[in-house]
Nucleic acid binder design. Sequence first.
RNA 1: GCCCUUGUAGCUUAAUUGGAUAGAGCAUUGGCUUCCGAAGCCACAGGUUGUGGGUUCAAGUCCCGCCAAGGGCACCA
Length: 569
Amino acid sequence: MYTMIEQNIGVLIRKSVIAFFPEFQGEVHLTTPQLQFGDYSTNIAMILARQMKRNPFEIAEEIVKNLEKNDAIETVQVLKPGFVNFWLSQKVLIPPLEDAARDIFKIPTYYFGKEKKVMVEFAHPNTLKLFHIGHLRNISTGESVVRLLEAVGNKVIRSNYQGDVGLHIGKTLWKMKQFVTELGIETIRAYSLHDKIALLGKAYAQAEAAYGVDEQAKKEIYRINKMVYEADPQIMDLWKETRDWSISYFEEQYKRVYSHFDRCYFESEVHKVGLATAKELLKQGILKESEGAVVFDGTQYGLDTRVFINSLGFPTYEGKELGLAQKEFNDFDTIDKNIHVVTPEQTSFFKITFKVEELLDKEKFGGKQYHLIYEWVKLKQGKMSSRMGNVVEGAWILDETKKNILEKFKDSELIAEVLAVASVKYSFLKNSTNSPIAFDLEESISLEGNSAPYIMYTYVRTQSILNKEKVVPSIRLATMNLGESERSIIRLLYQYREQVKKAAETFAPNIIAHYLYELTREYNLFYQKNPILKAEKDQKEARIAITQAVGKTIKNGLYLMGIETVEHM
RNA sequence: GCCCUUGUAGCUUAAUUGGAUAGAGCAUUGGCUUCCGAAGCCACAGGUUGUGGGUUCAAGUCCCGCCAAGGGCACCA
């Protein structure tokens, strides 16, 4: 395993340092530098320079001088201020390549605790509302994080928390009741799912408008909201039916982007537990009464003060979260970490609920809740707002991209669909999760350069070559004399597993995107320069093996990003 | 008013968590098919990393001030 190699090099350096500086205590830190600076690098000489009050370059030379010979290392080099750079020998570079060619990826493990089990909570659209482009980014991020955490050995539970009670429901149902009276429920039932969802959207928009100006409407909306909370039979039929439409619609969206959930939580099933918990916390003095509401005074922890039970006696979003947390942690026994993929405006909200949960049960919740901030998809033309009617539906952008692909290239419907999903997902995931995406309706999704089609095209290219010459009888690369361009691809392939681990540790799919793009570019350059099938015997064998390894690695990496591959395009 | 986040080429962005010459893609300009898929490849150009200071052998990254944008700060979710 490469980690062994890394450790071995660390030990070698350590020994070497101790040889001339016996009181050395610190850590030897190895990094993966740019290819031009070797496979591993250490800055230990610069750190020692301060302690020893000597020139770092001299120290670096001394380290190299005292270094024991090791057949994993081909070359060692000392550069400028005092970097020591290591080039690995083919002996250790080749096995990962051979593995990759056979579709074997020995990803190092990474756990957050002894349970080796984590929950990722993502998607969370609210029922009766649109599944918009922001949800699409959320689900792309969540799905990829799930797969990354699985890749490093965790059991991952996919969960999804949806708001099916609350003011937005009150509003929509208020208007929907009118629609039902006007149109008749049977007429509406005959609508396609898509039209039903559109009607719900219309109801919400009109209710939202009335809420601001019409006192009577506002009162009525509050009344309906209360009925929903109390599960009043008078409203429950409509509530249930509209909720079902919404849920089926969401299922369609999840399926289209290859996601699914182990458990979908709803506010309607947690608000009672939340309320009870908040009341209990009030008794314990963790929460307190203020102006008729029950609040948490965060000032003592440098946090905001927020309401958990409002003066009408309903649990707020904060109150419900207490119920959710308990259900999540009870339903799946102990988990090491619960990762909430949510926008940044909720930062204060999470800081407070996490704090309260910790005060409630430190053993159970302490240090386990994590808010993974993913940023908004912002429209270049202006903000998205359901009131303004300029919310971009998730499906819309997928459809647009697909149309674009069909127009530009002569792909089949099926392939265009896969490419569209890939393009949209990739365009989200290549950015770091915490950077806002400025989305331009005109420019749409990029289909060249650093994009999914570019990477996919390269994959297809590798498959096309392999179709012509499948057989790789024996890979004897370890002893072969490889050229420069072969070597840089092999060295990149060597880094893959480490990159996956890093991406998992930091919940950062963009690391995979970045890596795949780099690998793909390197391969394309190689392809352009060198014949593969027409190369000489040994060389041909090596190049086919590389082609196979690159293909498998691309496929594996794309899978980790939640992207399917195509064999032709 | 207080708190948090962000500011990198015309546009969209990366930078291995303090490392080496700040890396790409779009857009612009010029070039590459008798040959494995040109959705490709190469080249040119584009930068005082918002700004002023500080710490360090080393700062886009850390600290302080200022400017700008976004978000949050009691009964919405």
